[in-house]
Amino acid sequence: MTSDTVTRPRRVKTRMRPAQRRTAVKTWANTAAIAVVALVFTFPFIWMFFTALKPEDEVFSSSPTFVGSEVRWQNFSDAWTLVPFGRFIFNGFFVSILGALLSIIVAVLSAYAFSRLRFKFRDRLFLLYVLTLVLPQEVLVVPLFIMMNKLGLVDTYAALIVPFAFTAFGTFLMRQFFLTIPLEYEEAALIDGASRFRTLWSVLLPQLTAPLSVLAVFSFIGYYNSYLWPLIVINSQDLATVPLGLSMFTGERGTQWSLMMAAATLAVIPSLIIVALLQRQLIKGVALGGFGGR
């Protein structure tokens, strides 16, 4: 079809309009097709939400419908009060924000050293960092747990936040970006008598807001969704993060599927908000770093 227009340029003008229309129709048809696929794809979430609104005895039905005999919004408030869900969400945000902050500070400082300073063993040390990128975190949970236990940190926020703020990924990502920034700016600043820290803070970082926000968002999500480590290191409900709280809920309310789905919906909502607000950073982050999937 495109070759038509190319090989017979003279007739372009007259044939353009139907062709254009055809293209438009095709585009819309294509869009409709992907919309259907997307709908099927997101169906589990849709079903989750509608199940959350059903009376318990209608969750399993041989002729399933979206809306049950009544719409029970109170399932949400029941789920919220049966377990301290507000507490879980607070813990989730508290841990994730502090964790993301710590990760960023560590990454920026280390990346600065690795990209701007000369010191012995720099490249070898960096290689060591890079090697740990492929290390599955699960290999470390037993010794980390024993360490936390010996330090008396089991069942504390510190145990949730600190051990995973030092992964090489942040340092690696920030270093890659530091390397893209020409040295001239900093040299000028350094010659003017600014300290290194000042140069880093007011010359380098302002140019790196995009990667910084990417790192922040991904650290946040990593902490927020983390499950295995909190499962191991947290004993009390008061310190549970959202996934752990949700699993506690399932332990106690194994059959109350409508309440469980209400709780799951509540757990999913903050993530949906994050996607809605920060989709650009997310896409960029995945495209550049691609690490969040781990």
Partner: peptide, 20 residues
């Protein structure tokens, strides 16, 4: 009174005793 849910109790109690 303090403690985790029933299923977790049997392992958590061991870590709780060895903790602070």
């Amino acid at each position: 009174i303090d403690g985790p849910n029933f299923n977790d109790y049997w392992t958590k109690v061991k870590t709780r005793l060895s903790g602070s």
